[in-house]
């Protein structure tokens, strides 16, 4: 496959099967552009989360029966057994559906990862706290109470704190698996707005919790159905005039 300078991630002929046969991905070819939000959406069990987890090797090898093809991040095949997984996960951050706030202060939630990696300089840590909280659109709300426990924050704030925690490590790619599924519309709006800012610096891959969110946020959209990539195009095309009947049926709610 020809490499394009604008492609951050190139997935080539990628297939995966779980041991119990529950879910699989079949021959996926997908190019994810940098500095854009790429939305991966489709009905449950279609392979969205599986694909997301493969991008930072979170899939437990014990559950996976077979895996073929290549996933290239900047021309490096991350499925290669020699891949440094710690380094990969630093490069590819992830935010989950339910915020996992560590039982410590707001500040420590953010500095924890950096400290584990050996960063001790106060100034660097403070700088990272302010930068990442600003990027996650949370700074103004918490700047006066950075030493309060993270769990005291509202759900929407907790989710943005988790986003800030990933950003503190300065990843290149951010994976978000239904990051606003438990949030109210205002918090959802704030998270979506910060993603629009973040895409200027990062490559963002989002599994949205609804078709509406997919349509609102997608620069590019990939529709997955039963382990197959049905359609991939610019969001504005896919949600107004999809080319595949199955995509059309899904986005208009004709499924099931």
């Amino acid at each position: 496959m020809e490499t394009n300078l604008n492609d951050k991630i190139v997935i080539e002929n990628f297939s995966l099967q779980y041991v119990d046969g529950t879910e699989s991905l079949r021959n996926i070819n997908l190019r994810i552009p940098r500095n854009a939000i790429t939305v991966i959406f489709g009905p449950a069990g279609g392979g969205k989360s599986t694909l997301l987890r493969c991008l930072n090797r979170l899939n437990d090898p014990a559950d996976v029966k077979t895996m073929n093809g290549r996933i290239l991040i900047e021309n490096e095949n991350i499925l290669d057994p020699k891949t440094d997984i710690i380094r990969l996960r630093r490069k590819v951050g992830m935010v989950f559906a339910r915020p996992v706030v560590l039982p410590m202060s707001i500040r420590s939630n953010i500095t924890y990862g950096l400290e584990v990696m050996g960063e001790k300089r106060r100034s660097k840590l403070n700088e990272a706290v302010e930068r990442s909280l600003k990027q996650a659109a949370l700074w103004e709300e918490v700047r006066a109470r950075l030493d309060e426990p993270g769990v005291a924050l509202s759900g929407g704030q907790q989710q943005r704190l988790c986003l800030a925690r990933s950003l503190a490590l300065e990843p290149e790619i951010i994976l978000l698996d239904e990051p606003t599924s438990g949030l109210d519309p205002i918090s959802t709006g704030k998270v979506e707005a910060s993603l629009q800012e973040l895409k200027k610096t990062y490559t963002i891959i989002l599994v949205p919790h609804s078709v509406q969110q997919a349509a609102r946020t997608a620069d590019f959209a990939a529709f997955f159905l039963q382990g197959e990539l049905v359609e991939f195009s610019e969001g504005k095309t896919l949600f107004t005039a999809p080319s595949d009947k199955r995509t059309e049926d899904y986005v208009t709610g004709r499924f099931g």
């Binding site: 078709v211 509406q212 107004t240 059309e248 986005v251 208009t252």
Partner: peptide
Amino acid sequence: QQPMAHDLR
């Protein structure tokens, strides 16, 4: 209903 695709058109 927040229509999409054909319905939106």
